[in-house]
Design a protein around this nucleic acid. Structure first.
Lengths: 194, 194, 194, 194
DNA sequence: AATGAATGAGAATTCATTCAT
DNA sequence: AATGAATGAATTCTCATTCAT
């Protein structure tokens, strides 16, 4: 009976898991309320609207990735290659094992035309990701090339996740990551040789 | 009041353009009817259900790509490189200028869980695309490599299209295509040198 | 291709069989058109409305029963008992083997409140049936008793048909008929003995 | 604007009265909502679907008859004849004065093919009725005869109700009941004389 | 804070009927 | 006579949001 006094984080986490499973339009306020152990009407004590809730979820998730995941790309205690590897492993975990792994893409595509507000956060997420990659590749490439490479890699990973889903082929992403890591080693060698 | 005689193609084209703009769930029968100059109820003279209409649209579009676009990959009157270039140009046109260019991805992600029937057609589309690419790369790579390369390229292009959309950056795909063409030239040279 | 020039009887027969299977509200104009080898719009060359068609069907059917079935109750070439037996056999055939056998009851109940016009014909049908029975029982009972008996018998038969349907018990009607015939024999004997 | 707090019984009673008047298909969700003082959409707070509502109505009504009416057939404080009379009186009240008295028959016939779930409850109602009658006749007939008699009587009563409705003749059922009671007295005498 | 009843707009679909061809 | 396109009202059901208690 003791209602554990829902905290913000719990609400966002519970809601995220529903949004992941059903998408934005596919998720009803009822679904969200249930996931939070509430009745429909009670949700409105915590949130202003379904849209504002999703916006908060997206923002919190972006923040999480920025501070907890992408930050590893800047961790000087590890060699650049190892950081890249860390990131690849995390990405594989996220995209392969979590239902609705590429949440930002899914929601982005689904709501592109109807809810522009989401687009901003989604854009920011991908830009943070690309910057991280660029930082890592700046060790082996010049500034212009590294920017381009970073953009390419994120596109490649996202494309792989897409194909994984659309073709029901779980190995897609793994192959992509293997290739990227091998290639990075090559680039390191080339750089050293010069 | 009778006999404007909408032909099948017109209906599919009109409907496609609405589905592209609003997605599957976001498109109402009213939207579709309007796009065809009809009232809601009248649509049911032409179609059985919204779902069957979308299925027909997807199938027709897949057919179109197979016979009109991918077929260029097999056109012996052109050198392989030129065929790849043709395909790249067409892809750029489609994805850059047509609103909702990556229709198959959008619909695929949106309806993955709710309408399995769509998934079959979407899968078939991507497999046809991959096969075409594999055919082209079999000129410069062995069979295993060419299969892998083809899968990678399609993922790369789709990923680029995604980023293009999510980041509002129109050059993404162009850069990817440039890179692929240059790389193909390299592969041709390596092959010759052996 | 040679359209056999639908005659009235064919239309009524075809329509009856659909109405029997699906009821009045459950039958669409499309169903009726199909049953007549026509398209929806074409039906309106033959009929004024769904309602008028049903009214005609009911009337024709009532006429059929009056002239072809109930008339046997008045056939002097047979003994009264044999006439009753004939009628019982026909009733059993109709109610047991023809899907939607008790058409008049079904339609009567279904449309009692919404289409009063049907009620008149249905009433006339049952009155003709009761009169026939009364005629037969006037051989063994006085006029007041025979009227009452006739009403009772029709109610009993209809009740049996109902139970047959509602309880999925095919023997109901047969037992009722057996009992009625035996009882009639008794009444004949009592009459003779006086 | 909130909390008139419609209780289950009120909803079932209100809905029953609409279903009685218009049948199952003839009743719209709008009709039901109005009868309950609600707007269309609000009904769905109380019910899952029109079908589930009807099923609940049928079940509650069957329960009501079993516990409140048929139970009188087993009331040892009354002589069997008096119990039969009680039941006859109640039946007359129900079928004569309540619009749509033979609800189970009407709904049964209307939905036989389209909603099998209703059929179960309807069947159960008639079986309970028949059992009650059999129990009463077991005082004056042997077990086989009493079963047959019970089935016959229920058919007879239902048939009378039908005719009453179809012929707009209110006395039908009354005559049937009179006859049954008189006959029961006879059977009692015969039994005693043996 | 929590409830849950109520709303009202909108969804997909069905269908009897009309009418130009 | 036959068609089949078009209508428009009706159907069941969903859902984000509001608000009295």
């Amino acid at each position: 009976m003791a209602k554990p006094k829902l905290d913000r984080t719990a609400i966002l986490r519970n809601s995220l898991s529903v949004f992941k499973a059903k998408g934005y339009n596919g998720t009803s306020m009822n679904d969200l309320a249930n996931a939070n152990g509430l009745l429909k009407g009670s949700m409105y004590h915590y949130i202003e609207s379904k849209e504002s809730l999703m916006l908060e979820v997206l923002t919190a998730l972006k923040e999480h990735y920025t501070t907890k995941v992408f930050s590893k790309g800047y961790d000087d205690s590890l060699a650049p290659y190892d950081r890249l590897r860390e990131l690849a492993i995390r990405a594989e975990e996220i995209f392969t094992f979590e239902e609705g792994g590429d949440f930002f893409v899914n929601i982005g595509l689904e709501t592109k035309n109807s809810v522009p507000a989401f687009g901003e956060v989604i854009k920011a997420f991908f830009q943070a990701w690309i910057e991280t990659m660029q930082h890592l590749y700046s060790n082996v490439l010049d500034v212009v090339e590294s920017k381009e490479k970073a953009e390419l890699i994120v596109a490649e990973i996202e494309g792989s996740v897409l194909m994984m889903k659309l073709l029901d082929d779980v190995n897609y992403l793994h192959r992509t990551n293997e290739r990227l890591l091998k290639e990075y080693r090559e680039l390191e060698k080339q750089k050293t040789n010069k």
